[in-house]
Write a protein that binds this DNA or RNA. Structure first.
Lengths: 157, 157
DNA sequence: AGAGGCGATGTTATACTATATCAACCCCGA
DNA sequence: TCGGGGTTGATATAGTATAACATCGCCTCT
């Protein structure tokens, strides 16, 4: 995986790609890709942005797919635990995975203005593994998140 | 700064060191190192652990230093914004800075069993800067947190 | 001394994020 | 037909964080 940026691109493609990758993996592994789960993934894929659980819940509610917090959190837990989405700790929010299927240890670049999220190189993770090894620490999960300005918002400012 | 570990050490020293470093910096910069702020820093320094704002508030309350959430949050905001403490996003918690005074971009190693927090090497940050530069992204703040098992808890398990 | 400003604190209320719990349902296989 | 596993529905509550406004103490300027 190489650093990806904030280039514009055919976004229908992202959505179709993301959903069908998830569909395929669920079929393979005998997981249930239910309507709520599918819809939550679509909502996340519609933007390369971080969305709060309650933002998503609002959409679900408007569409009659569920109206209580656990509905959103369950779907998000499913997506995150199977690698179809990521949790952004810094924002207590969620974003669709940009590399569905790839076994990866993502680092995120989060724009504080437009909330766009990009998945960057795994190099920082390699360095973190090295530092941990030296300290005798066993990493089970790593959070690497940079917050700042994306190219577009830099230019606008 | 080099990777630090989980070695045992003279802990009185940590506390005295941390408090006096903060005291000195506040004097230099004309900041008010008030009783609540000092006490919160001490509480954090008493353990190399992440503590939630409400954990801290409980202690303050028991000591008559304040009983409402804003009291704790204000003190923590002060400490974090001046580099005397760090926020651990992964845990929604706080820990005293292990290198008071050093201008640093910390990476944390967080034990999920004992909640001990170590500040590790800055190398991952350098890699993150590199990835961001390639993407045209301007980093304003970075969160690098690894969660797992510290040497002691690994041995115990 | 008095007026005004500033930062810190006290207090109340509320917003936002997340999970526990239990009941109901559905599909599938024994 | 029965039972089990996983999903969903619904209520309640836990945990984290901030808005807003009043007050106070201290410093400074006049």
């Amino acid at each position: 995986m190489h650093p990806i940026g904030f280039e514009s691109h055919d976004h229908r493609h992202c959505i179709a790609e993301g959903v069908s990758a998830a569909e395929a993996r669920c079929a393979e592994e005998g997981l249930q890709f239910t309507p709520v789960r599918r819809r939550v993934l679509e909502i996340l894929l519609e933007q390369h942005r971080a969305m709060g659980a309650y933002d998503i819940l609002e959409v679900l509610r408007a569409e009659g797919l569920g109206s209580q917090p656990p509905v959103a959190y369950r779907a998000l837990d499913f997506l995150v635990s199977h690698g179809f989405a990521h949790r952004i700790e810094r924002l207590n929010a969620f974003t669709a995975c940009a590399y569905p299927g790839a076994d990866h240890a993502p680092a995120f670049l989060i724009c504080r203005l437009c909330r766009t999220v990009a998945e960057a190189s795994a190099a920082p993770r390699a360095q973190l593994d090295k530092a941990a090894a030296e300290a005798g620490f066993l990493i089970e999960r790593a959070v690497i998140e940079a917050e700042g300005l994306c190219p577009d918002c830099r230019n606008a400012a």
